[in-house]
Amino acid sequence: MSQLLDKAKNYVSEKVANMPKPEASVTDVDFQRVSRDSIQYLAKVAVANPYATPLPICEIKYSLKSAGREIASGLIPDPGSLKAKDTTMVDVPVKVPHTILLSLARDIGADWDIDYQLDIVLIIDLPVFGNFSIPLSQTGEIKLPTIRDMFA
C-alpha cells in the first residue's frame, strides 16, 4: 500500500513540476512625469498567462536601487488580473523623491542619467496551488528629464 502511495505522490509532484507557469519580463522603464516632490518613472512588465482562465495579481512589490542603495520601493495591492491565454502589460509606477536624486549627484552629473537596478516581484494567485511569485530584475540607465520634458 505504501508503494502505491509513493507512486501516486511521485506522479502528482512530477505533473505539477511540469505544468506551465506564468512568465514575466520587464519590457521598458521610462520617464513619466515630474511633480513638486518627485520624479515618476513607469516600468512596463509583460506577463504571459498560459491558462484558459484569467488569474488575479495579488500584489506587486518593487525596489529601485542606484549606486548600491535603495532609492525607491513600494507595494501595489490588487493591480488587476491577467488575461486568459494572453500576454498582459502591467504598469508599475515608481516615484523617486527629488531629495534622493540630489544625493546621487555624482552619478547624475556625469551623463544626466541614473544607473539603476529594478527588482519587481509579481505575486499571482494560482487556483489550487495558492500564491505564486515571479521575481524580475533589470539593470540599465534612466535618463533624467530635461526642462523641455517637464513642460511638454
Rank of each mutant, 00 (worst) to 15 (best):
K83T: 07
F129V: 07
A105E: 10
C58A: 15
D125M: 12
D125Y: 09
K21G: 01
F151A: 02
P50Y: 07
L75P: 00
I108W: 02
R106T: 11
I134H: 03
V26K: 06
L126K: 06
S73H: 12
K7W: 04
F129I: 10
I39C: 12
I57S: 09
F132A: 04
P77M: 02
Q117S: 14
V94M: 09
M1S: 15
F151H: 11
Q117W: 00
V121L: 07
Q117T: 13
D115N: 08
M150R: 14
T88Q: 05
A48K: 15
A84L: 00
L118A: 06
K85A: 06
A24G: 09
D28E: 14
T27E: 14
A46Q: 09
D28R: 15
N49Y: 01
A52W: 02
P77Y: 08
Y116L: 03
V92Q: 09
D149V: 08
R106I: 06
D91I: 00
T87F: 02
K65V: 12
N18P: 01
R69E: 13
K9F: 13
L42T: 08
I100G: 00
L101F: 01
K95S: 15
E59S: 12
I76G: 03
A67K: 07
L42I: 12
Y11L: 14
M150G: 05
L144S: 02
A67S: 14
I71Q: 02
A72E: 03
R33Q: 15
S73G: 11
Q117Y: 02
A8G: 00
S103N: 11
K95C: 11
G68F: 05
L64V: 04
D149H: 11
N49K: 06
N131V: 10
L55E: 07
K143N: 06
I76C: 05
D115S: 07
E141Q: 09
A52T: 06
K44L: 15
L104E: 11
V128K: 08
L75I: 11
S63D: 11
K7L: 14
P20L: 04
I134W: 05
K44I: 10
R148F: 10
S25H: 02
G80V: 05
K61V: 07
Y51I: 02
L82A: 09
R36G: 14
L101I: 04
P22E: 04
D86C: 03
T87N: 04
P79Y: 04
Y41F: 15
A52M: 11
P93E: 10
R36E: 13
I108D: 01
I57F: 08
D91M: 09
P56H: 01
P20A: 10
V12N: 04
A24E: 01
S25V: 10
K95I: 00
A67T: 06
G130S: 07
M150V: 14
D119F: 00
A72M: 08
D78R: 12
D125E: 14
V94R: 05
D28W: 00
A152F: 08
N49E: 05
G74M: 07
V16L: 14
S13K: 14
N131K: 15
V96Y: 03
D37Q: 03
S25I: 04
F151C: 08
D78H: 11
L55Y: 09
K21W: 00
P50C: 11
V92W: 10
G68C: 07
F151W: 08
K9P: 00
A105Y: 13
F151T: 13
V128M: 11
